[in-house]
Each structure stands twice: as C-alpha cells, then as structure tokens.
C-alpha cells in the first residue's frame, strides 16, 4: 500500500527536476554541441588536408619525371634509357597468375561452404578462420610462401613463387566476399530451380552464380588492388630484378623468372639507389592505378547489380 503511494510521487519529482534543470541543461548542451561539432570538423579538415597534401606532393614530385619513354622502356646504360616497363610487365604477370590460381579456388571453396557443406559447426569454424586469415599481416604469408614455394618447391626468388604466395594471401578475402554475395541470393530461387527438377550443380551454375556475380567481381577487383599494392611478399619472395622477363619463352622461364613489380621497383629506386625522381614517378603510376582499380570495382559492381 505504501509502496504504491511512493511510486507516483517519485515519478513526479523526477519530472519536476527535469523541468527546472531544463534551461541550464539546454545552455550547457548547446556549448557541448558546438564544441563537439568543431572538433569533428577539425578532424575531418586535418585528414583532408593531409590527404590532399600527400597526393599533391606525389604528383608534384612525380609528374615531371613521368614520360612515355619512362613507361615504355627498360633501364639501359647503352641506350641511355630509364624506364619501368619491366616492372609493369611483372606486375601484370603477378596479378594474372595470382587471379588464375586464387579465383577458381576461392569461388569453389565459397560455393562448397555455402551450398554443399552440411556440417554447420565446421562451416562456422572455417568462416572464422578465413576472417582471421584475411586480417593477418602479409609478411607472415611471405614467410610461409618463401618456405613452401621458394625452398620446398624449389622455385627460388621468382614471380611464380610470389604469385602463389599472393594467391594464398588473397584466398580468404575472395572466399569471404563470394560467400557474402552467395548468401544474398534468395532461398526461393534455389527451391524454384530444384523444384523444376534441376540438379544441384546445374542450379548453382544457372541461378546462384549469375545472381552473385557482382559480389564476386567486386571481390576480385579489390584483390587486384591488394596485389598491386603489396610489397612485403614480393620483396621477400619475388626478387628485385629490373630487366625484361620473357615469361612465355619456356616453362623454366615461366617458373623461375624473378623480378620487381611496381611497388618493389619503387622501393629499389628510393631505398637501394637513392633515386627519388623515378621513385616518385612510380608512385604516381601506382596512385593512378589504385584509383582506377577502385573505380572499376565500384562501376562494375553497380552495373552488374542493376542487371
């Protein structure tokens, strides 16, 4: 009985207190609000300035050294040329070989995990593992890749060993993004196809994969970005050679050519040879390339989603 009486009173008191504090609070809140907004603005401003300065500085230092000759020749004392064509070629090779290995494996694994595997426990464990693996530093992959491919498989310092390592490194990301987009395909589509007497693989090939192609392509392009931007693995496993490779001359060449990609070339110029001008020119190339890759990921993803 007494308790029942107390209740409304306290409620009223709280209400009154709220009211009389209202004015002071709104004053304080205004200042607090302004201060906070200012702080956020400051942070945003600083970040932007830093970014603009960074990009601006790279272009300022790099652009004057960039020329068609720089992009289309290799370094040669005889001809007096100074170019990064080998690095561009090596980068393309690494991106190509890595994707050719990682894409089928990753998409296949994702399809197995989401469409076939029936042991939920196992799937959750593997999903957790891939998530963790996609976050660990690349130098760890480099270490494992070096031991596995360069030493054990005898590939030495070579772009093939580097590509294999990078494939390993990109697998978790490709599996994750593919899985995510497979999961967005409505269950009704699967049941509809199976209900018409379609076999499971036929259903996956004709309904599920086309329905998730946007996610797969986006994941793939982001992987390309990661490969282009990677340096630790390539330095460790791929070698630093700056001359043209003829990968397709023989199987031996294909497997054992070593060489520098763009990021490694940048490192060589800047750190080993203290040639800052060409280093900045390479930086401009990398910056533009990264921008284009991200743009492609956005545009292609959007295009495919609209279809």
């Amino acid at each position: 009985m007494e308790e029942a009486n107390i209740m409304p009173q306290t409620a009223l008191e709280v209400c009154r207190n709220e009211k009389c504090r209202g004015k002071g609070l709104s004053m304080g809140r205004k200042i607090y609000d302004r201060g906070l907004r200012g702080l956020v603005w400051l942070c945003a401003g600083l970040t932007c300035t830093l970014l603009v300065f960074l990009i601006g500085y790279i272009f300022y230092r790099g652009l004057p050294n960039l020329s068609l000759e720089f992009l289309t020749t290799q370094e040669s004392l005889l001809k007096g040329t100074m170019g990064i064509l080998p690095a561009i070629q090596n980068t393309l090779y690494v991106v190509g070989v890595t994707l050719v290995i990682a894409l089928p494996l990753g998409v296949g694994a994702a399809v197995y995990l989401t469409e076939y595997a029936s042991n939920r426990r196992l799937v959750t464990t593997i999903e957790f593992a891939t998530e963790t693996l996609s976050g660990i530093p690349s130098i760890l992959y480099a270490l494992v890749g070096y031991l596995a491919f360069s030493k054990t498989l005898g590939l030495g310092y070579s772009l093939l060993a580097a590509s294999l390592t990078l494939a390993m490194m990109n697998l978790p990301t490709i599996i994750r993004t593919t899985q995510e987009s497979l999961k967005t395909v409505p269950q009704g589509y699967r049941e509809g196809a199976l209900g018409l007497g379609s076999g499971k693989w036929h259903m996956i090939r004709t309904i599920v994969l086309p329905g998730s192609i946007d996610g797969i392509v986006t994941g793939c392009i982001l992987s390309v970005g990661r490969i282009v931007g990677e340096s630790a693995v390539l330095l460790y496993v791929g070698g630093m050679d700056g001359t043209m490779n003829n990968f397709f001359a023989s199987l031996d060449k294909f497997a054992h050519s070593s060489g520098a990609t763009l990021t490694v070339q940048l490192y060589v110029f800047a750190k080993e040879r203290a040639m800052m001008d060409p280093a900045f020119a390479v930086a401009v190339v990398l910056l533009v390339l990264t921008f284009l890759i991200n743009l492609a990921a956005k545009v292609v993803g959007k295009r495919l989603r609209q279809r």
């Binding site: 409505p186 009704g188 589509y189 049941e191 509809g192 196809a193 199976l194 209900g195 018409l196 007497g197 379609s198 076999g199 309904i207 329905g211």
Partner: peptide, 19 residues
C-alpha cells in the same frame, strides 16, 4: 530425385520468378 521433381511440380507461397 530430379526426375521425381520434374514429374511433381511445385508452386510456392511467395512468387519466386528467377531474375
């Protein structure tokens, strides 16, 4: 099973045309 499902068709509660 695929042959069975071919002979016994199904229409679901929620319309599920393929995209």
């Amino acid at each position: 099973v695929t042959d069975l499902r071919k002979r016994i068709g199904m229409v679901f509660q929620k319309p599920n045309p393929f995209p």
